[in-house]
Each structure stands twice: as C-alpha cells, then as structure tokens.
Design a protein around this nucleic acid. Sequence first.
DNA 1: TATCTTATGTCTTATATATGATATTTATAA
DNA 2: TTATAAATATCATATATAAGACATAAGATA
Lengths: 245, 245
Amino acid sequence: MKRSSSLHSPTFSPLYRQIKELIMGNLESGEWGPGDPIPSESELASRFGVSQGTVRKAIDEMAAENLLVRQQGKGTFVATHKDPGSAFRFLRLVPNDGVLRVSRSIPLECWRAKAGPDVARTLALEPGAPITIVRRLLKLGDEPVVFDEIYLSSELFPDLSLEVLGTGESLYGLFEARYGVCMVRADERLRAVSADRVSADLLQVAEGSPLLLVERVTFTFGQRPVEWRRGFYSTRNHHYRNQLG
Amino acid sequence: MKRSSSLHSPTFSPLYRQIKELIMGNLESGEWGPGDPIPSESELASRFGVSQGTVRKAIDEMAAENLLVRQQGKGTFVATHKDPGSAFRFLRLVPNDGVLRVSRSIPLECWRAKAGPDVARTLALEPGAPITIVRRLLKLGDEPVVFDEIYLSSELFPDLSLEVLGTGESLYGLFEARYGVCMVRADERLRAVSADRVSADLLQVAEGSPLLLVERVTFTFGQRPVEWRRGFYSTRNHHYRNQLG
DNA sequence: TATCTTATGTCTTATATATGATATTTATAA
DNA sequence: TTATAAATATCATATATAAGACATAAGATA
C-alpha cells in the first residue's frame, strides 16, 4: 500500500483513509452485504499490506458514521436497517410524552411516472427517466403522524408495488433486503407549512393547520442520491428531536 | 493513574475516558478558558502519568464533540463561540437560495422574573429562583427570520440587560466572554405552529401562518442546563437544515 | 444428559516508538 | 535592518506489541 499522491499535494489523503475507501468499495460492490461480518482487522491488515492499527482507524471512522457496527468478541458487521436497534435511525419524530409506541407503515399508492426536472436533478437521473412514486402513511400507535411522498428510480427499484410494500415493515429494511440498496446518509430540510386537504384528512387534522414539512434526500454509498421524499409531519402530539453538538 | 473500578464492574471506564474527564474538569473550572491553548499532549501525558497516545485518544473524542479544536503545528485549543468559524454552530437555519447573508441579533426586551415550575425543571433551578428573560429578533440580511424568547438563571448571568446585549454580537459569544459560560451542547424540539399576533408582526408574516417552533435546552460542561429558549422561525425563504448519518 | 471448563478468535485498551507536516522562534548572513 | 535558514515544538500518521474482555464452540466432568 502506497499513498496515491505526494504528502504536499492538495489531494493527499492519509493511509488509513485510503484503506477506508477500499473498504467502502467492498460495501458499494455488495461484496459484504448488510448484516454480514467483515474480515477481522488483522485479516484486512495483511490483505491491504498495512498494520492492524491503520485498519482500526479506518474502521473507527466508519463505525462513527454508522456504516459498520463493532461487536466486541464477535466481529465487525455491516450496518443494516433490519437490525431493530437501527431500524428507525432516520426517523426523528418522538412523542411528546416520551412513551414508545409501535410504528406501522401503511402504503397508500404506488405508481410510475417520468422524472421531472427537479426530481431528475436531486436523484441525478436523466430528465424523463422512469421513476416510481409511493405515498404512505406512518402511524405511531393509533395516531397517523407522517404522510410521505417518496420518489425513487424505477431502475433501482424495479418491481416496487403496493403488494411488495406490504404493510408494516420498515421501508429502508425492504429496500435493503429486496433491492440491495443501503441507505447510509440523508439531508433534510424542514419547513412549517399549512396542511392541504389531502394531508389534513390523512393526518386527521384541520385543513390549514400547521404541519412540519420534511424534505429528505437519502444517499447510498459514494454520496449517490437514491431517494427523494417529502413528508408532512403532524406535530400535535409529537416533535422532531435534534441534538446539536 | 489507576482505573477507578475493576474491569468487571459496570461502572468501569477506560483510562482514556478518565483522562477525558480530568481534562473536562479543567474546562469546567475555567482553568483553560475558551480560545486558550491547552498543554501539549506529551505535557498532559506526563502530568497525568499516562502515555501520549492515551491523552491523544481523550483529546480526539473531545475534538469530535467540538469541545477542543486541533491545529496542526500550533496546538490544541478550547473551542470558542468568538471564533468566526463556529460562531453560529447552533443555528441550523439557512436561506433557500443558499446565498450567505450577514446576521444581526436585535435585542427587544430584557426583564427579571421568578422561575415557574417548568423553567425551574428544565434549568435545574429552585422554583421561584430569579431568572432573566430576553426577547430578541434575528435578522439574516434585511429579513427577520427568528423571534427568540430566552430564559436564563439570573445568578449565572447577573447584570444582563438590553445595554449589555448591545446589538449584533453573537449571544453565545457574549455569554462566554462576559459570564464565562460556554455553551457546549443543545437539545432541540421542533414543531409547526401558527403564528400569534406578536410573532407574526415581528417576523412580518400573516397572523396564523405556519412557523417553525424550536425549543432548545442548551448545556454547558457536565450536562448542566443553562439556557432554555423558544424560537419562532420563519420558513418562508429559509429552512432548517439537518444531516442524518 | 446437563453443566462446567477451556481454547480460540475477535474487538478493546494501553504503551512505545518513529517519521512526517506545520507553525513559530531563533540564529545567521547579506 | 532585513531576509533567509536552522532549530524547535506541536500535532498527524504509521507501526509494533501486549494484556484484557467478550462470545462462541469444543471438550471434560459430574
């Protein structure tokens, strides 16, 4: 293993980061799928021709980014949305009273369309490319709290349909299991808006009442955008929780 | 340096974390103030009787939490809100068009009161303890975008007044410089609400139009809550940005 | 059979050492 | 005096080594 550029070069990246990229490559290619254990640190060290400590530092960073999960005495595993612990990693909505409730995803509609200019741009597709649009309702306990409209490339999620979506399972768990697309990072933009007729009915609030609009672009490995989502959150009995460090 | 409990004990914490706590102690006590350099890694190592690598790991964690800032070749410094880079670390509101604008804090009111049960609870004060309440408007460019109501312990911020607040400077920069209270972490709860008369007027929106309500509890070292804040955000031309990892 | 012990492989923590990069200070030379 | 060069202190990166902790599987014992 040699560094790919001079130490003085602006494109210099330290050895552990190059190792990280190699490991990332194996995740992207699907060689190590979600939930799988990756080889041991020393195994990777000898495979890449670096010391175990260097591999460790690479894995440390990836674990901090929730791409890998360390388990002492067992090994290091590729993060998965099927894991109950990280199943709702991206849902920041919590009930005001703090009481946990069962969550249920209720698919409402699912149809095909052609990407308009805005969808094409955010998903890095050609304008006019085939996309699939999903509408679904998320319930926490008995209360409907989120109405989502989700835009996906039909090429990545070929046979997506209401039947496939079923009822209940975590969406990202499904995407991962069925299409091998692992959601890794997301950018969200939050606004306060007035409920239109459709959202108001679904969320059982008065038309015109304030809702939290959450626009999310979700990325898989390599900063590749694969999902665009507009969610209307009812914040009557819930709130969006955020920690600033 | 010895570990404070057996390796098997549930309260076990590794050596580097104990060192971290010691360093934290020096920050809490104000021995090393914001902006100051802390002693070098090897200096700390010999002072605490551990190896330099252990100190490094402690500092690494604190740098990741934005408590310390490393600067290669210079030293490691206590993070400060005066630093232009991290001046608005806690403000997640960005304009939709992405164009940066100058921000200005405009204090409106500042008065004393006694802590009600809710304020007392969130700020860990005795009910009835003296508190100071500040109302201020935040402008980005010429547009008013945030109307804040801020609750502080009068004991911690003794002579806070409209004059002291002045105009323009970052609030947390002021708190740090004048009162030695360094804001380190914050928990936020977001909701969509309807603008009341006061907020609507100040933010130049129609009464009843949707606003983003951001409730924030801000902590200083040692998880100690020192500020409670309710902010009404206008999301007409701005949005609250969040990254999910 | 059921339970306990041991072995093994893994991650975790800790230490020591060395080289490189960067910013500052000091010494030297023009 | 000024400009350059060398020394120094710092963090950054990489390697090697070791002992501890944890989980599992295999074997030994009651």
